[in-house]
Structure formats: structure tokens, C-alpha cells
């Protein structure tokens, strides 16, 4: 295992049984090689090469295949046997003209924006609350991580049952308060709200953790100074905490945005994007086109997926810029 054939001075001992040590001529007798014969670049890229190869094979190539899929007219037959005709942007035109396009775009925007807003607001309120010092604050904050750690299928199926029209705990609680049963998952006017609620629940811990660690970085002296100046808690939050938290907030929101755009599991498991596309987003639409039916439409599915990649990467770049700015400040 230990293939470090690189202990030059040990080789001074006679009878060193190690493998021949290539290029390591002691005392620098080599043909003009400098004192450190193995170039550092060589070693650095030796360590990096596996992951770069991996990126190429398992990121770049699947992405390339996806682009290829979106530019050809694939049938199930040609998907297996090859030879699908090149159709340029035909699949994209099909997708744009599809009656699902406008609703899917709208749902993606609403799902992402509403989820982010509530996750962030709740996460920030909780972060401020839990950064106070009281008994059990650390333990309780740790328990808040649970929804984020659970497998999405677990959360999604639990929410499905809680939101069940007839036997769900949510409707029975609402009924107790005098509100009639809501068909959370089966009515087109509520299905999107249902998956958003579940997604907010899952996303709060992430916001809480990031914003909490951001709060830790704000010096306590600032609060003391503000308090001396007569600022009450509300003012201290809006004049001190919130402005100073802006860089962390930006990073949290942007990262949340990129992650929320990709959300697929929760929606698919809870509603399959239905009923009648009322909770379909780009992610679930892409999956449905490619895998959700007996007659897969790989081309359009890949096209929808690629639109999603472009949107995600665009915001991803904004995120990386914001993060760089935060690091350098």
C-alpha cells in the first residue's frame, strides 16, 4: 500500500531493499535536474487527476449526452439502437409550444419564490431566537436539523398522509377549528401550496444553520453600543443584525434558490406534478417526459432539463460571485 518510493536519504543505507527509486539521484548528480527533481506540478496533478477524470466521465459526459438527446429526435427504438436523426432545436420548439410550458414555468417560479421567502424568514427568526443564551438552546437547535436530514421520500410520504383529504391530521385539525376539509393533494387549486408547505418545512433547517453561523460573526459590542444609544430589540435587529447579515443572507438565498430549482423528489412523490399539471415544475415535467410514461419522450425531456440547467447555472454564477465578495470582505 505504501508506495512512497521517495525516501532519498534512506537509500544511503546499503542494501536498501526498496524498489528502485527513479530519478532520485542523491547529491544531485542528475543531468541538469535541479535539487527537487520531481516537479511539484507533476505531483499536484497526480493527486488531482482522478477527480478531474471523474468530472469528465461522470459530469461532463452525462451532460453532453443530455444535450445530444435534446438535439435529436429519439424514439424508444433509436434510443436503444442509435441513429436518431439530428433535429437541431426542434425539441426546444416543441417544448416551448407545449401547453404545459407556461404553467410549468409559472409553478417553478412560484414554488421557488414562495419557498425561499418563507424558509428564509422562518430560518432568520429562529436563528435570532436560538442565538440567545438559554437552557437547551443548543440541543433544540440541533433537533431542528432533523427535517433536513431525513430522506426526502420519508418527509414527502409523511406529509402526503398528514395532508390526506379524509384521514389526514391537518384536515381534522382544521375541521376542529370549523374549517371545511381541503383537498390538499387532489385539488388543482391546493396541490402547489401543499408541496410548497412541505418544501418550506424541509428547507428551514438549512437556512437556520447558515444564518445562525452568520449571526455568530457579528460582534457583541455592536449590540451593546446600540443598546447604550437607546435602541430597543426591534431596532437593534433592523439597524444592526439585518444589515450586517446581508452578505450571509445573499449567499443563503442564492444557494437556496439553486437547490429549490432542482427540487423534484418531494413534488413527484406527493402529487406527481398533478392533478392536471397543477403542481408541475420544470424538474417534474422533465422527469415525466423522460421516465414518467410508457412512451418516453427523451428529446423534449432532455430539452426541459437543459433549460433548467441553464437557469440553475446562471443563478449559480451569481452565487459564486456573491460568495467571493463575502470572502474577500
Amino acid at each position: 500500500m505504501n508506495t512512497t518510493a521517495q525516501m532519498p536519504d534512506a537509500s544511503a543505507a546499503p542494501g536498501g531493499d526498496g524498489p528502485a527509486k527513479p530519478r532520485r539521484d542523491p547529491a544531485g548528480t542528475g543531468r541538469g535536474t535541479p535539487r527537487r527533481p520531481r516537479s511539484p506540478q507533476w505531483a499536484a496533478w497526480g493527486f488531482l487527476a482522478p477527480v478531474v477524470a471523474y468530472l469528465g466521465l461522470f459530469y461532463a459526459y452525462p451532460l453532453y449526452r443530455n444535450i445530444d438527446l435534446s438535439l435529436r429526435d429519439y424514439t424508444v427504438r433509436s434510443f436503444v439502437q442509435g441513429g436518431a436523426p439530428f433535429t437541431g432545436l426542434g425539441n426546444y420548439r416543441t417544448v416551448f409550444r407545449d401547453p404545459t410550458f407556461a404553467p410549468a414555468l409559472e409553478h417553478t417560479v412560484v414554488f421557488t419564490a414562495v419557498s425561499l421567502l418563507f424558509q428564509y424568514a422562518a430560518g432568520l427568526a429562529l436563528a435570532v431566537f436560538f442565538s440567545q443564551h438559554f437552557r437547551l438552546s443548543t440541543t433544540l437547535r440541533a433537533l431542528f436539523l432533523v427535517p433536513w436530514l431525513l430522506p426526502l421520500i420519508v418527509s414527502a410520504s409523511t406529509w402526503s398522509w398528514m395532508l390526506n383529504s379524509d384521514s389526514g391530521i391537518v384536515n381534522s385539525t382544521l375541521g376542529w377549528a370549523g374549517i371545511g376539509p381541503v383537498n390538499w393533494l387532489t385539488s388543482p387549486s391546493w396541490s402547489l401550496a401543499s408541496v410548497i408547505i412541505a418544501n418550506i418545512w424541509i428547507g428551514i433547517p438549512f437556512n437556520l444553520v447558515l444564518l445562525h453561523s452568520g449571526l455568530q460573526a457579528i460582534p457583541a459590542t455592536l449590540y451593546e453600543a446600540a443598546a447604550l444609544d437607546g435602541a430597543n430589540a426591534w431596532q437593534r435587529f433592523w439597524k444592526v443584525t439585518f444589515p450586517l447579515l446581508r452578505p450571509v443572507s445573499a449567499v443563503t438565498l442564492l444557494l437556496g434558490l439553486v437547490y429549490t430549482l432542482k427540487v423534484f423528489d418531494i413534488i413527484w412523490i406527493m402529487t406527481k406534478g398533478g392533478p392536471s399539471d397543477s403542481s408541475t415544475t420544470f424538474a417534474t415535467w422533465s422527469y415525466r417526459l423522460g421516465f414518467g410514461t410508457l412512451l418516453p419522450q427523451f428529446g423534449p425531456g432532455a430539452a426541459v432539463g437543459n433549460i433548467l440547467v441553464v437557469i440553475a447555472l446562471a443563478f449559480g454564477l451569481v452565487y459564486i460571485r456573491a460568495q467571493r465578495k463575502q470572502m474577500s470582505s
Binding site: 459526459y61 452525462p62 432542482k262 424538474a283 422533465s286 440553475a312
Partner: peptide
């Protein structure tokens, strides 16, 4: 940078590419 960008790619797109391969 590529590592950061790679994390942004939606899983469903990767899945479709992997499926084809």
C-alpha cells in the same frame, strides 16, 4: 470552480444522461 458549478446541476438532468449511458 467546476466543483462549485457541478453542485448546481439538477439531479434529474444527471439522471437522464446516466440513463442514456
Amino acid at each position: 470552480f467546476l466543483m462549485l458549478a457541478a453542485q448546481m446541476i439538477p439531479g434529474i438532468i444527471m439522471a437522464m444522461g446516466f440513463y442514456a449511458i
